[in-house]
Amino acid sequence: MSIRIRINGVDKELDVDPEMPLLWALRDVLGLTGTKYGCGQALCGACTVHLDGQTVRACVTPIRRADGHSVTTIEGLSPDGNHPLQRAWVDLGVPQCGFCQAGQLMCAAALLAKKPQPTDTEIDQSLAGNLCRCGTYTRIRAAVKKAAGLAEE
């Protein structure tokens, strides 16, 4: 089946099994390896991407759900790594191992798109489904708050 998808602003047509997880289409077919495989059960958040601006877990989302829609991955958040969240992540040294960071950033970006000045509680609730093996949650929260300020600049 032919799947038409707009990926990071570029139209693509993929000839793949419609039940293929979006994650594998991104990583194996399109070579976009920033989105990570964590648990394969939508429990850890490492595979979070945006589907028409809404967060989805790419490991359990069949590619057919993206047919005719727009998907944004960590690579599409900012081509030059200059998104306010990415800048805040670097400024505050958020990642340790970095494994969860793409999913954390994508959830944070969706939050800021809806709520430009989130409270600590809103940040915690929005990112609650993203597990960080290194426990950098306080730095993640601080970076989201910093990015909210950077976005105003």
Rank of each mutant, 00 (worst) to 15 (best):
L23K: 09
I5C: 01
G45Q: 10
G38I: 11
D80W: 07
C47D: 12
A142L: 04
G81H: 10
I63H: 08
G135K: 08
L43R: 07
A148V: 12
K146M: 14
A151T: 11
L131E: 00
V94G: 09
T33E: 10
I63S: 01
A109M: 08
A58C: 07
D120P: 00
T61N: 03
M106D: 11
I3D: 00
P84G: 02
T35K: 03
L43N: 14
M20N: 08
V144R: 00
R141Q: 13
K36R: 14
L150H: 01
E122T: 06
A142E: 15
C107I: 02
T119C: 09
H83W: 06
G40E: 11
T121P: 00
T61P: 10
G103N: 12
Y137S: 04
Q86V: 06
A58G: 08
M20K: 14
K12A: 13
L14K: 13
G93K: 09
D28Y: 14
A108L: 12
G103R: 07
Q86K: 11
E75L: 04
K146N: 04
E153R: 13
R133M: 08
N8P: 02
E75A: 09
L127N: 05
V10M: 10
A46T: 04
T61Q: 05
G9S: 11
V144A: 01
T33V: 14
T48K: 08
A151L: 13
R64Q: 05
P79A: 09
C132W: 04
G93F: 15
C39R: 02
E13H: 02
W89V: 13
W89L: 05
C132L: 02
G38Y: 02
P118W: 15
C97S: 12
G98L: 08
D67C: 01
C47K: 06
A151H: 05
S2Q: 14
C59F: 06
Q41H: 14
A110N: 12
I140K: 00
A88P: 12
